[in-house]
Design a protein around this nucleic acid. Structure first.
Lengths: 221, 221
DNA sequence: ACCTGAACACCGTTCAAGT
DNA sequence: ACCTGAACACCGTTCAAGT
């Protein structure tokens, strides 16, 4: 009850968690707070502003990793925290893709990733690019998983594959039963994170035959 | 005029391209076709079904790469085609994250990626995971770029950094002017793709000290 | 089958008015 | 400043009716 603003955001979040983003209407949020829809406007100038506030609201729940740990653990800790956030608030998650992270909370997360990459030994000129690559993947994975894009997208069941004409989709045919193996999205996420950690290490200290420096940055310039 | 259904989807796509996804209402689409809103329902049982059709409509525009080329070119060609699709239809793009790709068009794209990964020498047990990783990144990058998440999110201008208290955001401070370097999203995308190609090669033929096999798959089992 | 017109139960937002 | 109630211009969808 500290602030009306917070009370409104809590109501909006509860509605989104219970009945999805479509259930978050100005009227429904207001009713839950016990007030008229127009009473929200002194706090949020539009519904769009309220949704921005909702993004900030869930970002505040995201725990930052202990800065004293090893960089790889900080990075994977953050990634897992984002995935857990998606499981808690699946309906709100897609908003993170369209609403730029300019709130202090969001920038603090970016800073933690920058720091981890610097500690890993990534060249400063590549830190911002890698941060965008990692956050894009982590956000995308979380949204895909809770949004059902993974579950239904791959034709990964014997039944569905059986409906296909024989000569179509040769790679699906070749992979066969490997596509319908039982699988945990959590285990897959961790395998992906392990691969990406290797990639970071590789960029931090490229061996012989390594990736060329990114265009416009690196040893040249 | 071949089909009313196609005419409706073209009208919906035009509205989305011109005025955003919010402009795609049953009434507005119908008016553009020259018909009442209720006339759409024999073709699409709900607005949701129409949006599914819209996803299929833009996927049909996505050119598959020449299957005769090297796997790395097929993969990056596909990725660039997705990015171009996002530039042509920015408002529709976010729908790809929530609507599972089950249409024949979408499955054909997945099959092309499976095939490229198999040709690269990726162990069959890891192909599906890597396909999800790559498609998640490519889709996420495209949506982030055209949706403005990259442009505004990183506090990457001198002005905005100047507003910060001195001791906050140490990594931003350390990176300093490297954060506001002029930058091309296209060049960054290609640098990311180059890194991911290296990652695929690494998984295809792991050297000494390589990533352990993914849990539940690989040499073990 | 495809289409219309009226209706229902909603939206976000503005405006005049109250405290 | 915060809130109300009425109103405006919209929504998606159902239903009865037409061809």
């Amino acid at each position: 009850m500290a602030d009306r603003r917070q009370e409104i955001l809590d109501a909006a979040l509860a509605l989104a968690d219970e009945d999805g983003l479509d259930a978050v209407s100005m009227r429904a949020v207001a009713q839950r707070v016990g007030v008229t829809a127009m009473a929200l406007y002194p706090h949020f100038s539009s519904k769009d502003a309220l949704l921005d506030g909702l993004v900030g609201r869930i970002l505040a729940d995201l725990a930052l990793p202990d800065p004293a740990g090893p960089w790889a653990e900080r990075l994977s800790g953050l990634a897992k925290a984002v995935r857990e956030l998606a499981h808690r608030h699946p309906a709100v998650m897609p908003l993170l893709f369209s609403r730029p992270a300019v709130t202090p909370d969001a920038v603090r997360v970016v800073d933690a990733i920058y720091q981890a990459l610097l500690d890993a030994g990534v060249p400063p000129g590549q830190v911002a690019r890698l941060e965008r690559m990692l956050s894009t993947f982590v956000l995308g994975y979380a949204v895909s998983e809770v949004g059902g894009r993974f579950a239904a997208g791959t034709l990964g069941t014997r039944e569905r594959r059986a409906q296909l004409p024989g000569t179509e989709l040769p790679a699906h045919q070749e992979l066969g039963s490997r596509l319908d193996a039982p699988w945990s999205w959590e285990a897959e996420f961790e395998a992906d994170l392990a691969d990406l950690t290797q990639l970071i290490l590789h960029i931090a200290s490229p061996g012989p035959g390594a990736v060329p420096p990114a265009p416009g940055e690196g040893a040249q310039a």
